[in-house]
Each structure stands twice: as C-alpha cells, then as structure tokens.
Amino acid sequence: MKYHLTHLKELEAESIFIFREVAAQFERPVLMFSGGKDSILMTHLARKAFFPAKVPFPLLHVDTGHNFPEAIEYRDRLVTDLGVKLMVGSVQDAIDSGMVVEETGVNASRNGLQIATLLEALEVHKFDAAMGGARRDEEKARAKERFFSHRDEFGQWDPKNQRPELWNIFNGNKNMGEHFRVFPISNWTELDVWQYMLIEGIELPSLYFAHQRECFVRDGVILAKNEFVEMKPTEKAEMMTVRFRTMGDMTCTGATLSEADTLEKIVQEVATTRITERGGRSDDKRSETAMEDRKKKGYF
C-alpha cells in the first residue's frame, strides 16, 4: 500500500488536474457557483489546485431571485474567504428586460429561465470555459457527459456527437464564439462528496442539516413554504424536521424528512438511503428526458 491512493485522494487528484488544465488551456474560464454542496466542493478543490496562489478565475452565480437566504449568506462569506471575484447573472433582470417570460401557475419555476441568463452572462463576459459541479451519477443524461464538453456558438450540447475523451488528454481547442462546459467532479458520487466533506471538515450552509421548517407536500415532494410558491387551497403547511440534499430554487427543491444534523449523520444517511438525491427535484420530473432536453439548450 506504499504508493497507493485512497479513492477519495485519487478523485481529488483527478479534479485538481482538470482545474489546472482549464487554467492552462482557456483564456477566460469561470466557475459556475450555485451555493450547493457540489459547487462548494468545486471551490475547495480549485483552491487546492492553485495553492498558494489564488483561484485564477471568478465565480458566476446565476441568481433566480428565488434562492434560500442561507445559501446567499454562505456564498458571500465564501467569496470573501477565497478572495475571488463574484459575478451575478440575474434572472429577475432578464424577466424585467423582457428577454424571458416568467412561467405562471402553481408549478411555476424559474429553473428553465436560468438557461438564457447563463448564456447571456457567458457571452457578455466572453467566458470560454464554464466549470460546473455536475456529476455523472446524478442523472442519466449526465452519465454521458465529458469532462470537457464542447458547446457550439448557440451554447448547445450535441450528445450524439461528442469528442472522444481518452487518457488524461483533454482537447479544449475551439473556434471563436464557441465555449466549453467543464465538469471537474464528474466521477464523484453523492456519497463521495459527503465523505470528503466530513474528512476535510468543510463548512456547509445550514440548509443541508436537519432543522425545523414550515413545509407542505406536493406530488410527493416536500417543499418549503415560501413567498415564491403559490400554494393550492388543498395544500396545508406544517412544521417538519427536514434537510435538503440538493440546493436549487426554493420553488422546486424538495426537502427530505431527516434527523441528520451533523456531517457524520448525513454520511450515514446517504449511505443507507434508497432514493436518488434528485428524486426531490420537481424540475426533473417534468418528463423522462427533462434533463437532456434542458442540457441540449445550454443548461448545465
């Protein structure tokens, strides 16, 4: 076992390699930061990749305006800590300017509207590589993603015509106007992420830990009662002990009933759970290929 890495150290080394490759191959990379645990892991790994220098790219947050306040607080603290620049692309601005039209009705979500805002932010700032915290174990369309995923000038993904990716050689060559999505933590699973958080002692937003919250149930998904969701007359909010396994919009991120209020307990819970983490995401439930459809248009 002398010259041997644990699987977490090997995953870490792979992700660090990808971050450095992005910094070397692209002129204007950006890290897409949502405030979720995967993007928190990304910032942690990026910091390791360039230590003792600062992370050589800014963070981009596509703000739907429907965030959990805890996520925003955490984001601002992290940005100060890292000493990097934060850029915010606002879905509210896109709605106000008439670039996109807001969905209406009880199931309205701004999830899909993030695409236009993201693509606009990439274009305005001329970012040529947008790094995201997507993992292949999350969703079946993501299981086919490359580390370096080429996007045409419309930001579209062509899953049937992806560049083969071999060994450690990543082809980031592109023409003007095209960009790449890069996924440094492709090979991590949800359990890997949590185990790593525990071993590394990474601080996380309080939403991930069990807490008391006023919630209601819709189509089997537990949603937090909040100002952005219109409740149906038949829906009734009550206090529940919950935590969140993923972090998205307040309108579509489902909570799970949980007593796990420490990282140790979360790791234990994730190791024994039988439902995928995106099982609580109503944005994925719109159709069987909801994720692929959004990804083709430029969703991350």
Partner: peptide
C-alpha cells in the same frame, strides 16, 4: 464505516 471508507481504493 468511515474507517473503511478511508481505506477504499478505486
């Protein structure tokens, strides 16, 4: 267990 996890390889 966490101990097992720290010994796992890939």
């Amino acid at each position: 267990t966490l101990d097992e996890y720290k010994k796992m390889d890939l």
